[in-house]
Design a protein around this nucleic acid. Structure first.
Length: 899
RNA sequence: GCUGGGGUGGCGGAAUUGGUAGACGCCCAGGACUUAAAAUCCUGUGCCCUUAGGGGCGUACGGGUUCGAUUCCCGUCCCCAGUACCA
């Protein structure tokens, strides 16, 4: 072997070997357990960024680990290649989106290959190619047949900057997921996929996978779906026979209603505009206008409203109530109207205060002492100190206090007085249903998925409009509806395809008469909702995939990606899978058994204080001062210009990016990958710092030199057992080896990538610490070193596969590496790993005072005697009364003395 | 505001879930090798006191439970993420 480690040379060598032998091409093999490792596929933006490197390094580590454990691993990759950046490039630079995309893919594939990621390239998918989007259309037709795809006019989220429609998920927080700008509402006719049909399943099926998903993602999806169980109630509008239906989760507070508040867009408002005064109408128009404005993030909109003059009747007690329009009531949720209970709802309380409406209390706390503040009180019963607050007089919810929103006991509620909230909710709902003015109901925050996009670079929606037949689906045999190649793209928000008569004009598949094609394309999230199925059967021209392949490979065993997709891609994919199941194409309900969300890679970004321009760091000269926490307190360029700084997601455009190619060029892919996994726990944010990567490279070089040093001696080592006595050098090393194997395996199963590296470094240090020259080593020692080094190299494979292959070839004495030799991940010998003498710390009154050596399993009594006889211990116990001795077997001894 | 997750050396981070806090790495300092440098190797490295042996203090802060608390409980402060009137 070479004296020196040349990353580039061996990385190229093994990359070539893997490609030539098709090392990572997966084949169905019913004899072997399968493992489907998946990472979120990249958008071909033009360059890989460090976030990709982190994501794919982690995925590759899992793939290798499972591969070395004997699993039949499927580890595919593809391109999420439809979407707006290609279209933006077309508008800005006049390039052809398809050519732009294909070029980017070529560049990025090269980058992935140079990282040596073990992908099955034969299964590569491209969302923008007809062979793929044909099946987006195929699925759309299936969903149309199922009634899962439908069209309606509605207010949609509109991003002015991108000139694009957004789904609710993509407009989460009132901001566009791509550009981060506020979103407005716009009336548009749109195709929807009925995600709400699966709302309950999307919630309940978490039971099947919850243990394998980050709780944060589960929580976010649950919140997003937002199921709430409550009651629909009808309030009659006096003198009209019409009813206003409200939704409430707190029907138990119905005796505290002071008004019915409806959305400005509510039909009853529209119907009664004529009978309202000009002032009121004016106000309503203003509120409507306010509702349509973009939502300012983090700014609470002030409550506004107006009394319509209408009177509604509380169906429970016949009380007459004013009907108000309120800007905080949304037409899109529940019934578009609420019963206002200011005593027990924070928003109603605020509204009532502002407009001087009556506030009445109908619920009191079930624990008497806590009623006063109108807030739930966690009385600290341990202290015994209790300030008994005076109970509020019934009927008065108090002036300045907040609403009491907790459950409690009903008061001032007619025959329901004295019931607990929970019981009253059930009873009152049943009562309403029996008397025909209400029913139990469940509402969701989740809305159907709007998939129409007035964009060019996406899959055309395969629908035809015929004056005679109406909406007609394209025939399956006519798929794909091809995306034309030369479309003028203006970027102004209309559908580019509409300007192309040869695309638009067609004939009706039903009656054959002239008809028009749908000119909108599908949301790119459609492509990514099912791509992982396509990988199992990527060349299929008839079906999206053959169910037999899906049955073998799916569900995905481990999925890795960023948590920015927690409520977009990950909800859509789960929805898609449920549709597939109902189509009979798969037999399970959840696509991803385990999910790992890796943290962002961020970098320090600097801005010129005057111009606001970004300054490149660390390559340009920026000097910084840091506080005790390592946070930058001030920064300046070398010419003395002071700089502002921020920590931002790494990217080229932000000037804090590191080019993966450059990094591979300098350090090699193996060191880069090792470092990115070692630097921080995978789920943490990673602040990029060049210094650490040297350490990774140094470690690889140390392992290299270790193999080099022991090469000959190891080749001459006996094939059979070495020593097992940890008292000897060889036995001690063997113990360390097996302890390390145990630790590393365990960590990998738990998806911890940073701690195994530490373990491997310890093992490597242990070999170095032997303090013997290979030439002098006994046969047993040679055996122990060989075992240690071989294990080390194998365990390094998931991080740094090229150098591991190369070193293993040296150890094996042939040209083949790990894969070709059929090597496996080492298995620990637990007997060897167990220590036969352990160090027991001895405490006196909880303070560490001594350590004694003892065999594991030494009886407590024996240990106690031994410890008390210890000279060091006696210094502390001499002349004192020993109260007791606590012995934790194999762990620790604590002597309690009287002071 | 609400919900969730956190707060450990100069830095990234360990710690078998109640049992030796700070593994491993980075940074830094000293030494060896070298004509010199780089590379490599060795040593030190939580803070304070001490000539040494050693001692004291330390896991955001204040309490509590326990023989023993980074870990459990109560309270306070701070940070990060999600969310934005969802009735």
């Amino acid at each position: 072997m070479d004296e020196k480690y040349f990353p580039k040379k061996i990385e190229q060598k093994w990359q070539r070997k893997w490609a030539e032998t098709g090392a990572f091409e997966a084949k169905v093999d019913l004899e072997k357990p399968k493992f489907y490792q998946l990472e979120m596929l990249p958008y071909p933006s033009g360059n890989l960024h460090m976030g990709h490197v982190r994501n794919y390094s982690a995925g590759d580590a899992v793939a290798w680990f499972k591969r070395l454990q004997g699993f039949n691993v499927l580890h595919p990759i593809g391109w999420d290649s439809f979407g707006q950046p290609a279209e933006d490039a077309a508008v800005k630079r006049g390039v052809n989106p398809r050519e732009w995309t294909d070029q980017n893919i070529e560049v990025m594939r090269g980058q992935l290959e140079r990282l040596g990621l073990s992908y099955d390239w034969a299964r590569q998918t491209f969302a923008h190619r007809p062979g793929y989007y044909k099946f987006d259309q195929w699925f759309f037709l299936k969903m149309f047949e199922m009634g899962m795809a439908y069209k309606r006019v509605t207010k949609v989220n509109w991003c002015e900057t991108d000139q694009a429609t957004l789904s609710n998920e993509q407009a989460s927080g009132g901001l566009c997921w791509r550009c981060g700008n506020p979103v407005t509402k716009k009336d548009l006719e749109q195709w929807f996929l009925k995600t709400t049909a699966y709302a309950d399943q999307l919630l309940d099926d978490f039971r099947q996978i919850e243990s394998g998903w980050p709780q944060n993602v589960v929580k976010r999806q649950q919140d997003w779906i937002g199921r709430s169980d409550g009651t629909l109630l009808d309030f009659e509008v006096r003198g009209s026979g019409e009813k206003i239906r409200v939704f409430t989760t707190r029907v138990d507070t119905v005796y505290g209603v002071n008004a019915v508040i409806v959305a400005a867009e509510h039909p009853i408002v529209e119907a009664k505009l004529a009978v309202m005064s000009a002032n009121v109408v004016d106000k309503i128009v203003k509120i409507r206008a306010g509702n349509a404005k973009p939502v300012e993030h983090e700014v609470e909109v002030e409550k506004d409203g107006v009394d319509t003059g209408l009177i509604a009747v509380n169906p429970f007690n016949g009380e007459e109530l004013p009907v108000w329009v309120g800007n905080y009531v949304m037409m899109e949720y529940g019934a578009g109207a609420v019963m206002s209970v200011p005593g027990h709802d924070e928003r109603d309380h605020e509204f009532a205060k502002k407009f001087g409406l009556q506030i009445r209390q109908v619920i009191v706390s079930a624990t008497p002492a806590s009623a006063a503040g109108g807030q739930s009180v966690n009385g600290d019963s341990n202290t015994g100190v209790e300030s008994a607050a005076p109970a509020r007089p019934p009927g008065d919810a108090g002036g300045d206090e907040r609403a009491f929103a907790d459950y409690g006991v009903l008061t001032n509620s007619g025959e329901w007085t004295g019931h607990a909230s929970e019981d009253a909710k059930q009873g009152m709902t049943a009562f309403a249903a029996d008397n025909g003015f209400g029913e139990a109901a469940t509402t969701y925050r989740l809305r159907d998925w709007g998939v129409s996009r007035q964009k060019f670079w996406g899959a055309p929606i395969p629908i035809i409009y015929c004056d005679t037949c109406g909406i007609v689906p394209e025939k399956y045999e006519n798929l794909p509806v091809l995306l034309p190649d030369n479309v003028p793209i203006s970027g102004t928000g209309e559908s580019p395809l509409a300007k192309l008569p040869e695309f638009v004009e067609t004939t009706c598949p039903n009656c054959g008469r002239p008809a028009r094609r749908e000119t909108d394309t599908m949301d790119t999230f459609v492509d990514s909702s099912w791509y992982f199925y396509r990988y199992t059967d990527a060349a299929n021209e008839v079906l999206p995939f053959d169910s037999e392949f899906a049955k073998y490979w799916l569900p995905v065993d481990q999925y890795i990606g960023g948590d920015d997709h927690a409520v977009m891609h990950l909800i859509y994919s789960r929805f898609w899978t449920k549709v597939l199941r109902d189509l009979g194409m798969v037999e399970f309900s959840e696509p991803f058994t385990r999910l790992l969300t890796q943290g962002m890679v961020v970098g320090e970004t600097f801005f010129d204080d005057e111009t606001g321009k970004r300054v490149y760091f660390p390559s340009s000269d920026v000097s910084v001062e840091r506080d005790g926490k390592g946070k930058i307190t001030s920064a300046a360029s070398t010419n003395g210009q002071s700089l502002k700084y921020a920590i931002e997601r790494m990217s080229k455009s932000k000037g804090n990016g590191v080019d993966p190619d450059e990094m591979v060029e300098i350090y090699g892919a193996d060191a880069a990958r090792l470092f990115i996994l070692f630097a921080a726990p995978i789920e943490n944010e990673l602040v990029w710092n060049e210094a650490g990567i040297d350490g990774a490279l140094r470690f690889i070089q140390r392992v290299w030199r270790l193999v080099l040093k022991w090469e000959t001696a190891m080749a001459e080592s006996p094939a059979s057992q070495g020593g097992t006595d940890p008292g000897t050098r060889s036995g001690k090393l063997r113990q360390k080896t097996h302890q390390t194997i145990k630790r590393v395996g365990k960590s990998f199963e738990a998806l911890q990538f940073n701690t195994p590296v530490a373990a491997l470094m310890e093992l490597s240090n242990a070999i170095g610490d032997l303090g013997i020259e290979p030439a002098e080593a006994t046969a047993e020692e040679r055996y122990a070193v060989r075992e240690a080094v071989t294990s080390l190299v194998l365990m390094l494979t998931p991080y740094s596969p090229h150098v591991a292959e190369e070193l293993y070839a040296v150890l094996a004495g042939n040209e083949d590496g790990i894969l070709a030799n059929g090597a496996r991940f080492p298995v620990p010998d637990l007997d060897l790993a167990a220590a036969d003498e352990i160090e027991i710390p001895v405490q006196v009154n909880g303070k560490l005072r001594a350590r004694v050596m003892a065999a594991p399993g030494t009886p407590n009594a024996e240990l106690e005697v031994m410890v008390l006889a210890n000279e060091k211990v006696q210094e502390f116990t001499r002349g004192r009364e020993i109260v007791k001795v606590v012995v934790i077997p194999n762990r620790l001894v604590n002597i309690v003395i009287k002071i």
